[in-house]
Computed example of a mutant assay.
Amino acid sequence: MGFFKKTTHHAKLNVPAIVQVAAIAIITIRCVDVLMVLNVLGGRGIVDFVQRSAQTWALTLIFLGSLLLVFIEILCAFSVVKGRNWARWLYLLTQLVATGYLWAASLGYGYPELFSIAGGSRREIFRSLMLQKLPDMLVLFLLFIPTPSRRFFRLQ
């Protein structure tokens, strides 16, 4: 019987509550974002958006890139709970890319309109962008600043 004995060595992680909250927040924020876009566009708007996104290579790449970004962020959420330090840095990178693109698209350097923020001036657009990104900045704060978070990622 000892010949077929199955041994498993799973180290139990002591995940800080702050990291758990951050991971849950990432998933929740992305799900709510998708639901809000679906609500704003409606069924016909979604079909129009996908058809418009498939008209040119640039629009198709932006559309696929945005979907990839959402999946990467959700992957980061699951990975930070496992103590993967790269996941919090990758999440930071996704936020920099998304914020940079939103800022550029809002100033007229990108498209489609769905990925832009309306405003009368650069200051208004920037203020709206920062308010929109506030939940993500809070998540980044939870992953990088508190001592339990830094210790958790250092030990893994």
Results as ranks from 00 to 15, higher is better:
Arg30Cys: 08
Leu64Ser: 11
Val47Gly: 09
Leu38Phe: 12
Val34Glu: 10
Cys76Glu: 01
Lys82Leu: 09
Val47Thr: 08
Val37Thr: 12
Ser79Gly: 06
Asp33Lys: 07
Leu67Gly: 15
Cys31Arg: 03
Ala25His: 00
Asn39Thr: 13
Leu90Met: 14
Ile74Lys: 00
Val37Ala: 06
Val37Pro: 01
Lys82His: 03
Val32Phe: 13
Ala54Glu: 10
Thr94Arg: 00
Arg88Val: 06
Leu67Arg: 14
Asp33Arg: 04
Lys82Ser: 07
Val70Tyr: 05
Gly45Thr: 01
Ala58Phe: 13
Trp89Arg: 03
Ser53Glu: 09
Arg88Thr: 05
Asp33Tyr: 12
Leu61Gln: 11
Gly43Lys: 13
Ile62Glu: 08
Asp48Pro: 06
Thr60Glu: 07
Asp33Ile: 00
Leu38Gly: 04
Phe78Gln: 05
Gln51Arg: 11
Val81Trp: 03
Val80Thr: 01
Val81His: 04
Thr28Arg: 06
Leu64Gly: 13
Val32Thr: 05
Ala25Pro: 03
Val47Gln: 09
Gly83Phe: 04
Val80Glu: 00
Phe63Arg: 05
Arg88Phe: 02
Phe49Met: 06
Ile26Cys: 05
Glu73Arg: 04
Phe63His: 08
Arg52Glu: 15
Thr60Leu: 13
Trp89Ile: 07
Leu41Thr: 04
Phe49Arg: 03
Ile46Asn: 12
Val47Ile: 05
Gln51Thr: 12
Leu90Glu: 02
Val32Met: 14
Phe71Ser: 11
Leu59Pro: 02
Gly45Asp: 01
Ile46Ala: 14
Leu90His: 02
Val40Ile: 15
Met36Tyr: 08
Ala77Ile: 02
Leu59Ala: 14
Glu73Val: 12
Leu61His: 09
Phe49Leu: 15
Tyr91Lys: 00
Gly83Cys: 06
Met36Phe: 14
Ile46Cys: 10
Val81Asn: 01
Val32Gln: 06
Arg30Lys: 13
Thr28Trp: 08
Ala77Arg: 03
Arg30Gln: 14
Leu93Glu: 03
Glu73Met: 08
Thr56His: 13
Ala54Gln: 12
Cys76Lys: 02
Leu90Ala: 11
Gln55Asn: 10
